[in-house]
Nucleic acid binder design. Structure first.
Length: 500
RNA sequence: CGGGGUGUGGCGCAGUCCGGUAGCGCACCUGCUUUGGGAGCAGGGUGUCGGAGGUUCGAAUCCUCUCACCCCGACCA
């Protein structure tokens, strides 16, 4: 076979970041494009990561008083029309169902038949259909709050799909709540924002900037939109989750009213919030390296892979016996919100190939076990946060004792590294020239906090730089500043970046 | 939807200008040798050359139409 490149993934991040991203997904066997344009097939390894994300979040939603339910995939077109900004925001990317059966076509094949009286759209988000139901369910203040979530697929007909980051169909959760007061709804919106940020940082090991979206970046129909913005290794921003305070906009549009304790009828205050399979894309771009995927242990499909090494049947049975006992002891241990997940891979393929496969798939700990190790009652351990060749021999008892703390070290190390990278690429900028230099075509870019004002001319300038306002950070201090473009007074800095 | 590009075994590509029985690498299968590291040798299977028309004795190659995908823009979780 030809000489191996120094890295398992080619091109490297430095050579071509977008292509590297695609190659990591392929090498780790996470997902593939499908025959249906814009839609992807999520393969078992990728799906397992998503399942872990789902389970962890779902537990947290439930722990904060939410319940799951399910609403229809199809939404009558007229529902979308009810909220003006909402229509405008989504109309351009809706899949529309106009017929309900097929019939033989004259020239062979099939053609749609049975036109629907009213076209249905495939949900791009479910505010309208859920609001319609809430309006029926809510009579009095005693019915509030309603705190529901659904795990679902949605469709937004995208022109330029990218695996996980932007696909026509994607999976997500959407929380929808209705409250009696604005204050309570705002508290809900912010509580979920914190929940998302905590999840991103402590489970995904992905540092984020929490903040509020500027007017132009808000969810269509929302009063305010809050976001967590993560920074990828190419220093571009990824909107990783959003939480919206919808005010009474949707309640008004859908006649969602309750009778208050004083006998006065009022519109509800609603929120919605979601994270999607895009998180998997963020995970990949946050941690992975030129040898492939790196999954933070808390979300890894498997924490530890055991690779038996043997030459003949006698060694095989001896080694496998040793491995089985290891599996038992490891899987009995608690890690994060479950047990240690171990994969014993005794497939009859070459050791090097096998080992590289798990490097590329990002398994946190790889363990090689051969006759020599058994003779010394030890195991040969490699960690995904170290070089592929950097392996150490540990006694069996020591390895078993240290396994979960090693996982913690890897998890913490990934976070620390990502956080350092994000901080290093975050700056404050106070004049237009410096801003333009920071985001120049050949500059590395990053996050830039600057004063600004939301004007058409400023938008044009930003467009030219391919930069968008990401958010006004929650921890931004009030200060007297001036827009670096127009000189208008500004109270808080906005974080700008190129984004996905 | 604008601008550019590409469609040839599972994957990546050559061949197209200048028409003449479809090739290479990887992967796959079999056997032997190897085996603490993405193995070596030998043998084997794999294609209506994106589709439809046309020109021609003959089309992957020329002409017309069409479809799909990719990249760059506009839009976005």
């Amino acid at each position: 076979m030809a000489k191996q490149a120094k890295t398992a993934i080619s091109p490297t991040r430095a050579e071509n970041y977008p292509e590297w991203y695609q190659q990591v997904i392929k090498a780790a066997d996470l997902a593939e494009t499908s025959p249906v344009r814009g839609c992807m097939v999520i393969k078992p390894w990728g799906w397992s990561i998503w399942e872990n994300i789902q389970r962890t979040l779902d537990d947290r939603f439930k722990a904060t008083g939410h319940v799951n339910a399910y609403f229809p995939l199809f939404i009558p077109m007229s529902y979308l029309e009810k909220e003006a900004e909402h229509v405008e925001g989504f109309a351009k990317e809706c899949a529309v169902v106009t017929h309900h059966r097929l019939e033989p076509a004259p020239g062979g094949g099939l053609r749609p038949a049975g036109p629907l009286e009213e076209p249905l759209i495939v949900r791009p988000t479910s505010e309208t259909i859920i609001g319609e139901m809430y309006a029926k369910w809510i009579q009095s203040y005693r019915d509030l709050p309603i705190l529901m979530n659904q795990w679902a697929n949605v469709v937004r007909w995208e022109m330029r799909p990218r695996l996980f980051l932007r696909t026509a169909e994607f999976l997500w959760q959407e929380g929808h709540t209705a409250h009696a007061t604005a204050d309570e709804a705002i508290q809900e919106t912010l509580m979920i924002l914190d929940l998302y940020a905590d999840f991103a940082e402590n489970v995904m090991a992905m540092p984020v900037t929490k903040g509020e979206k500027t007017k132009g970046e808000r969810f269509p129909g929302a009063v305010s939109t809050y976001t967590i913005e993560a920074m990828m290794q190419d220093r571009k921003a990824l909107q990783a989750g959003t939480s919206h305070f919808l005010g009474q906009n949707f309640a008004r549009a859908q006649n969602m009213k309750y009778l208050g304790s004083e006998g006065v009828e009022e519109f509800c205050w609603t929120t919605s919030w979601g994270v999607s399979t895009r998180l998997v894309g963020g995970l990949i771009m946050n941690h992975s390296d030129d040898d492939g995927l790196i999954v933070p242990p808390k979300l890894a499909p498997k924490h530890i892979v055991l690779m038996p090494i043997y030459r003949n049947d006698e060694e095989k049975s001896q080694v496998l016996e040793f491995c089985d006992s290891l599996v038992k002891e490891l899987t009995a241990q608690d890690y994060f919100e479950g047990k240690v997940r171990v994969l014993l891979d005794d497939r009859d393929i070459r050791g090097g190939e096998k080992s590289w496969q798990y490097v590329k798939q990002g398994v946190p700990i790889r363990v090689e076990i051969g006759p020599r190790d058994i003779a010394s009652d030890s195991v040969f351990v490699a960690r995904r946060d170290k070089s592929p060749k950097d392996k150490e021999s540990l006694s069996r008892t020591e390895f078993i004792a240290r396994a979960t703390s090693m996982l913690d070290e890897i998890q913490d190390g990934l976070y620390a590294r990502a956080k350092a990278a994000k901080e290093e690429a975050t700056v404050r900028i106070d004049d237009r020239k410096a801003f333009e230099e920071y985001f120049a075509e050949d500059a590395p870019g990053g996050f830039a906090a600057a004063h600004w004002s939301e004007e058409p001319e400023v938008e044009e300038i930003l467009k030219g730089l391919k930069v968008t306002p990401r958010c006004i950070p929650m921890d931004a201090e009030e200060e007297d500043g001036k827009c670096i473009f127009t000189g208008k007074a500004s109270k808080k800095r906005v974080v700008f970046a190129r984004s996905y």
